[in-house]
Amino acid sequence: MADIITVTVNGEPRELRVPPEMPLVWALREELGLTGTKLSCGIGVCGACTVHVSGKAVRSCVTPIGEVSGPVTTIEGLSSPGGLHPVQKAWIENAVAQCGFCQSGFIMAAAALVDEAPGAQPAELLQQMTNICRCSTFSRVRLAMMVAAGHGAKIHD
């Protein structure tokens, strides 16, 4: 039977009795009830399942729980007691989400980019945002990313 795996999720150590090959996304959703992290393509292409491990964006559908080596942050743990993450604020102010199913993943990916490289140029940031949104909210994703990264609302020109 499965060993006990200990992993810190949103600041709390959690013990899971699951096989180490279980993808992190399923451990979060079905073992810990954290359904804010979504699953869509299941093969690491779309980014809907993006969470942070040690502050870096990872696609949790292709990350076995046994290989998680640092603290995990999910969309539920992104905001601090002080308030929403700047990316979340920019997302809400610019009304990005439509159905919203991809948005946890977008926000986690954008938050990692903005936090990791403050002052990065718009094109660098946008190149790395490879998430898929079938509602195709990309116009506003661009806008919100620029606002969150401190580049104001101008993307084109």
Partner: peptide, 19 residues
């Protein structure tokens, strides 16, 4: 008008059939 479900969709609180 701001979408009434926007904040939930940006904080992981929104629930779908899949959830």
């Amino acid at each position: 008008q701001a979408r009434i479900d926007m904040a939930d969709k940006c904080t992981g609180k929104a629930r779908y059939g899949f959830d």
